[in-house]
Every structure is written in C-alpha cells, then in structure tokens.
Amino acid sequence: MLRSMYAGISGMKNSQTKLDVIGNNIANVNTSGFKKGRVTFQDMMSQTTSGAQGPTDARGGVNAAQVGLGSQLGTIDNIHTQGFRQVSNNPLDLALEGDGMFVLQDENDATFYTRAGNFYLDDSGDIVNPDGYYLMGMNEARINLPETAQSFSIQTDGTVNYIDGAGVTVVAGQIALASFSNPAGLQKAGSNLFLDSPNAGLADAWVTPETQGSASIISGSLEMSNVDLSEEFTEMITAQRSFQANTRIITTSDEILQELVNLKR
C-alpha cells in the first residue's frame, strides 16, 4: 500500500484531536478560572532510502534521502496565562492577579488547586467552593466566619477580617496560595480543579499572597477563562482545512491504486 495513505490517516487523526481541544476551549469560554489547551504535532520517523555520505577526494558529499511517514501528537499543553477580570461586587468572589492558585481540601484532606474564585459560606461559616471543598488559610487552617460576624472583608494580601457583635474587628485568618514553577504540569481534575503532578514543580503550598512573587487577591471580582474566541475560530479553520487536505491525500492515493488495479484489464 502507498505510504501517503497512512500519512494522510495520521494527519486526519491529529486534526481531529486538535478539533477536540478547540471544542473544549470554546465550551469553557465562560468558565471561571479555566485555562485553555493547545495541541502541538511532531513528524513521525522517516524511512531512509539512502544514507548521507561525506565528501571524498574524488567527489563531494551526498545528503540522505528520506521519506516521512506522517505526523504524530506532540503535546497537549495547558496555557496558564492570566484571564480577564469580571467585577461582580460579591465579597466572596476572589480573583488572583498574578501567579499562584487557591488551595482547597475536601473532607478527606485531599488537596486540590484552582484559579476559580467563586466561593461561598456553608452552614458552619467555613468558606467553601461550589463542591463544598474548604478554602485553606495559612498554617493549613480553614477560614471560618462565626454567626456573630456582622460584616467581613478580604484584603489583597488574603487577610479575612470580620466585625463581631461588639463592633470589634477580628482577623478570621489569611488565605494561602500555592506556588508552582511549572503550572502547565498540573493535571486537570474537572470542576475547575487541578491536581499536583511530578512535573508541576510545587514550590510551596502555603504562600502568603503578595509575597515571594505570588498573586494579589481581588475581592468582588472573578478571573474568567483565558480563551480567546477569535484565536480559537482561526485555529478551528486551520484544523478543518488540514483534515480536508489529508482526506484528499487518501482519495488521491486510492485513485492511484485503482489505476494500478486496472492495468490488468
């Protein structure tokens, strides 16, 4: 069979993977804290028909002759650029301006990380995310606002203050951030959550905001998705044309095979 046919198949499969990633990006264009994906490709091994030869006294050098066998998936990257900020005026909507991620823990003390800052108060006064995971403060402490709290505020350095029944300002805790040298190495766990991985480079899971190059916390705002629709639609067009071109390679190869079959007639 013709090598071009198998090369075309590999190109079609890769174009489909790229369209899958683009579709996921567009589906999450309004998801708080979402980080877009990107696909890169690599060429597959090439078949060498003749090797390279160095120059001699009698003649010059000869380059290798190689035929490529198609393309393969290189990487599917998570792009952790800053998303735009949407003002909500809800004091429990928190946006990160800079590097870092919120630290969450579930009832089993499993740790998750997120950039989605839409938090709520549960019945006990703990600050939680939509799945009920606790927003963690410094010293691995939960942040709790008692029933006697008249009002509260969250500062840019993560300090949570509230006014008690006597009108005294009390510090409820300080929100902690996690610092990663390679946030693209985090694994997506769904529900706007990320998990640590051996390649994420967790530098410190309990960083004070606005220190060590970590982000500031903006209360009353949400960081939205970093998906750019114009970029995604452009990439969708290129992926579609790539798919069509690879199908044309397959149909052309099929026509050549048909001509070979018809030689016997």
Rank of each mutant, 00 (worst) to 15 (best):
A176T: 09
G98V: 10
L135Y: 04
Q66M: 13
Q72C: 00
T48G: 02
G132R: 02
N139H: 06
P130R: 14
N144R: 14
S32A: 12
F233Q: 12
L263G: 02
G117E: 10
F34W: 02
I9S: 09
L135H: 02
I249M: 09
F41S: 05
S50Q: 15
A205N: 07
A64G: 13
A149Y: 07
S219M: 05
G74W: 12
A52I: 00
I26V: 15
R265E: 15
D204Y: 09
N144D: 03
I256D: 06
M45G: 11
I250Y: 12
I217C: 08
N90Y: 04
Q47N: 15
N199E: 11
L202K: 07
N24K: 03
Y162F: 06
Y6Q: 04
N144C: 05
Q86D: 01
I154N: 10
D109Y: 09
Q150C: 03
N226V: 10
L121V: 03
G33P: 14
V227N: 03
M45R: 10
I163V: 15
A178F: 11
D99N: 09
Y162Q: 02
L2V: 10
L186T: 12
S151M: 04
F194V: 02
T111P: 03
M136P: 00
F112R: 14
E232Q: 14
D131T: 08
T169E: 11
T211Y: 02
M236A: 15
K188W: 05
S50Y: 15
D157T: 03
Y134F: 08
W206K: 04
S179T: 00
D196E: 04
F34R: 09
Q212N: 12
Y113G: 07
D164E: 04
M45C: 04
A149H: 05
D99R: 14
F84E: 15
R248T: 12
D93L: 05
P146H: 00
I163K: 10
T81E: 13
G185L: 11
S71L: 11
T247W: 01
G51E: 09
T48P: 03
E232G: 04
P209T: 06
L92Q: 11
M5R: 00
Y6W: 06
A64Q: 13
G11H: 04
D228R: 10
V171D: 00
N14G: 02
R3I: 14
D57G: 06
P55F: 08
F112G: 14
A178M: 13
L260K: 11
A176I: 10
P91N: 13
M224E: 07
Q212A: 12
T156C: 00
P130V: 15
M12R: 07
R3V: 14
A189H: 01
V207Q: 08
N89F: 10
R115A: 11
G185M: 06
Q155Y: 01
Y133T: 06
M236V: 14
P91Y: 05
I175C: 13
I175P: 12
F41M: 08
A95V: 06
I127P: 13
V168I: 07
L222E: 14
E255D: 11
T234D: 01
P198Y: 03
E232I: 09
N30G: 01
I79K: 05
L263K: 09
D204M: 06
Q150D: 06
D77L: 05
Q240T: 12
N262Y: 06
E147F: 10
D93S: 07
G98S: 12
N24T: 03
